[in-house]
Design a protein around this nucleic acid. Structure first.
Lengths: 337, 337
DNA sequence: CTGAAAGCGCTAACAA
DNA sequence: TTGTTAGCGCTTTCAG
């Protein structure tokens, strides 16, 4: 081993001195650009390696105007769904040399704008942001950003640049049709009270509208906020069924509360799907281990993240892709009326 | 899709021209540093705002050698646990002006080193990395990095700089003692086959060692890889109990497979915790909604993330904190032998 | 309180 | 194939 490296951070110049090759050529070797003789390359790499040199991308980015960062802005990390989108983004960025930087908004438009400003100050090569709803300031920044901007998870609205997602209005409507076709008529909705969750709101709206078209009103509805969603689903279901024992179908804002409701029904010996039908949303893996499979719709979040990343990596603009959320009937919607 | 003509990005100079104030003073205003008259400040802010100027932190970081990025390196995003650590980091960074940049290693040491190199090239203000096990190259880079390095989730080993986590060996041992005290003697372990999961391996080792001290051998063991963990837990449990019906306790590598096992037992009418006791690990919220609460240990992942972030934000070095994972007995370990 | 000059460490563009 | 010359857009430093 050589002696301890200096506390002063190493620069290209150190590698240049150690190898007797000009800074420019060292730079070429380290980036794998341009023609460099094998001998020179070896000398440079040996020097860089033995010094433990790590290039300074800040300087590199400033000089080249190329930044390998992608800004990712999502509401939260606690909701299972977003990490899965991140995983998809991570997968889609694979091999492109791009790296995700993420920020959470906690469903607060002002924080979204602040986080976005912060991220744009790094001049990322692209922006991926959840949803189509942004405040005026965020909207202006996104419109001015001269890089791919992909709004994900939702296509019910007008994107600023590209969008990849599903129509939550259509998803709600599609579920309503399946529920009606199965003969259920006294239908309750169990949602969340997170004001900023536009996608849940749209599903509910699509669901209610489709019911209305068939002359069926929403019979009851309730909402929760915070805490363990599985337990909340159980408790909400117990409360709603106590208040409205006539209900024959329960549509949940998401699979986790739906699973809680399902477990409650099974524990109570309620006949599912005969006496009461159930459905959630997201298509979580989780459901596969339950004693009975909850009806749901696959929200395609991994695929959405991956596709968004590909759009950014490809430097594309104006791409709009609406994926179709597969309806998974599971065991909680009866087949015959 | 289409492509857009590049626009020249705005610079300080544009704001300077628009406001008639020198670049230097504009810079001061925008950073809130130094004494600037209210009148000048207002003029500058008005100009910056109306232009939609976003500062270029790349240039700023190069000039000031200050970077508001924190590198976060975790094995994966699909395992619930890591997003929660990220959420803790996000919370701990709140108000510090620091932003997390994350990368996933997929439990591959070579990828860990590659991701780390990539991140260090941005000269982050700190590094938070999962675990104490790294390859020689990663270890060397971390040792040379002149910023806080916090290894999280595990304290069974020697950290490079700081560490915040729990002792998984002790956690396994502690669970073993609870199991033995309850009188269980024919004990099986249900784990994962992810080779790089050092923490699960350490829990198992601590568990087995503590059993051995009491003269009790591990009676059986099995492992899974991939797929829906809840379903896997159910299937593994079914298979193991079929092969070894004499087992009276099942220790799971994590709560999700444990929950799957619990649901299977309940569905089969197995007397839990009388005939068979069960325990998992992590203390997931999920468990609160199950018909019976699985015994587990809180792995303190949010707190760990937050604390690690605080260490980075504080610029601290050499801090070692071992949190204690609370034992949650739930309803799946009997109280009397 | 405000401004001018001199880089930060690297790479584009050109020269040799 | 390799080297030289200018910056990239900002902040530090020091002068007014």
């Amino acid at each position: 081993m050589d002696r301890r490296p200096p506390r002063r951070p190493l620069t290209l110049r150190d590698v240049s001195d150690a190898s007797g090759v000009s800074e420019m050529t060292v730079s070429r070797v380290l980036r794998g650009r341009g023609e460099v003789s094998a001998a020179t390359r070896d000398r440079v790499l040996a020097a860089a390696h033995s010094l433990g040199y790590v290039p300074n991308r800040i300087a590199g980015a400033l000089a080249s105007k190329r930044v390998n960062l992608v800004a990712v802005i999502i509401p939260s990390l606690s909701n299972m769904v977003f990490p899965e989108v991140l995983a998809g983004i991570s997968a889609g960025l694979e091999g492109s040399g791009l790296q995700p930087v993420f920020g959470a908004t906690h469903y607060d438009p002002a924080r979204e704008a602040a986080v976005l400003y912060e991220m744009l100050s790094w001049r990322p090569s692209g922006v991926i942001v959840a949803g189509l709803e942004h405040d005026a300031s965020a909207r202006a920044m996104l419109a001015q950003a001269d890089v791919p901007v992909v709004e994900v998870l939702d296509t019910d609205g007008t994107p600023i640049d590209s969008a990849v997602g599903i129509s939550h209005i259509a998803a709600g409507a599609s579920m309503a049709q399946a529920v009606l076709a199965a003969g259920y008529r006294r239908i309750g909705y169990l949602g969340t009270s997170v004001g900023g969750d536009h996608r849940a709101r749209k599903r509910r709206a699509g669901f209610v509208a489709a019911l209305a078209t068939a002359g069926v009103p929403l019979a009851a509805e309730t909402a929760y906020d915070g805490g363990s969603a599985l337990a909340k689903g159980r408790d909400m279901t117990a409360a709603l069924m106590a208040a409205r024992p006539d209900l024959d179908f329960l549509y949940y804002a998401n699979d986790v509360i739906g699973a809680g409701g399902l477990l409650w029904c099974l524990a109570q010996g309620v006949d599912v799907p005969g006496r009461v039908g159930l459905a959630g949303f997201n298509g979580l893996d989780l459901l596969e281990g339950l004693p009975r499979r909850l009806a749901t719709q696959d929200s395609r979040r991994f695929a959405i993240g991956r596709r968004a990343a590909e759009i950014v990596a490809g430097g594309l603009h104006g791409v709009i892709e609406t994926l179709t959320p597969e309806l998974i009937r599971g065991d909680t919607i009866r087949t015959l009326p």
